[in-house]
């Protein structure tokens, strides 16, 4: 049984077709990157798997359950794009609160260490750097010791150093055996972290495979070229 699955899922927002019958499956222990340009439907796919939006057609399941069910929620964590996190709570308080939502959370010290927040746990969220803020959101995603992690553009807006630091923490968490769905428009990020990449454009999966597969398929050297090639092919099909 896949850990999470979308089957022929479509979603429309008014005139915009955000998803057009996509299939996506995440298996145990896999880190799948959903790679695509802005507005391709990445966040919509994540929102459906988190139960924050419902599919117009098709089915979405998480651990064989409806995404909005409490059973699904208890076994997953999510790092979402958020414009403003309450700034007058301390790092420790944020983590303690989210830990209380789960029956068997990680110990506070373990979460703090796993997210690289040692030394800043007593600071107010508003006083943190961008990289630290993002690592707090990562801590909130992992504090319940989930089997499945959703990371929606986790390193957007971070400098290279902060990005690499977060990658390190993501890798360490995957090494514990968790599955991850990562959305990104950073090709380097998908290449660096994913076992499997699904390229999404205009609400459809246009290519899928290991980073090496995708590079091979388009006979280019880097994933970046492969990506541009795939998106271009898709655009040409659309014209035809």
């Amino acid at each position: 049984m896949p850990v999470a699955e979308l089957r022929r899922v479509s979603k429309r927002y008014g005139a915009i077709e955000a998803l057009r019958g996509i299939d996506l499956r995440i298996d145990r222990g896999e880190l799948v990157a959903l790679l695509g340009p802005n507005g391709a439907g990445k966040t919509t796919a994540v929102r459906i798997l988190l139960g924050l939006a419902t599919a117009d057609s098709g089915t979405a399941t998480v651990f064989g359950r409806p995404p909005a069910s409490q059973e699904a929620k208890l076994r997953r964590g999510a790092l979402l794009q958020v414009a403003k996190v309450p700034e007058t709570l301390r790092v420790r308080e944020h983590i303690e609160l989210f830990s209380s939502y789960y029956p068997k959370p990680l110990a506070l010290s373990e979460t703090i260490a796993a997210a690289g927040l040692g030394g800043v746990e007593n600071r107010l969220f508003g006083d943190l750097s961008g990289g630290q803020k993002q690592r707090v959101l990562f801590a909130l995603a992992i504090c319940g010791n989930p089997d499945l992690l959703f990371l929606d553009e986790p390193t957007v807006g971070l400098d290279v150093q902060a990005r690499r630091a977060l990658w390190g923490h993501i890798r360490a968490f995957v090494a514990r055996g968790a599955s991850v769905l990562l959305t990104t428009h950073h090709l380097e990020e998908a290449d660096a972290l994913a076992n499997r990449v699904a390229v999404i454009n205009h609400g459809r999966i246009v290519a899928e495979g290991t980073p090496a597969d995708l590079k091979l398929r388009t006979a280019q050297t880097g994933l970046e070229d492969a990506f541009l090639e795939l998106v271009k092919e898709d655009a040409m099909e659309e014209v035809a």
Partner: peptide, 12 residues
Amino acid sequence: LGWLQVKRASPM
């Protein structure tokens, strides 16, 4: 500003 979404995605 998105915070409620994070809470709603969690088991709160």
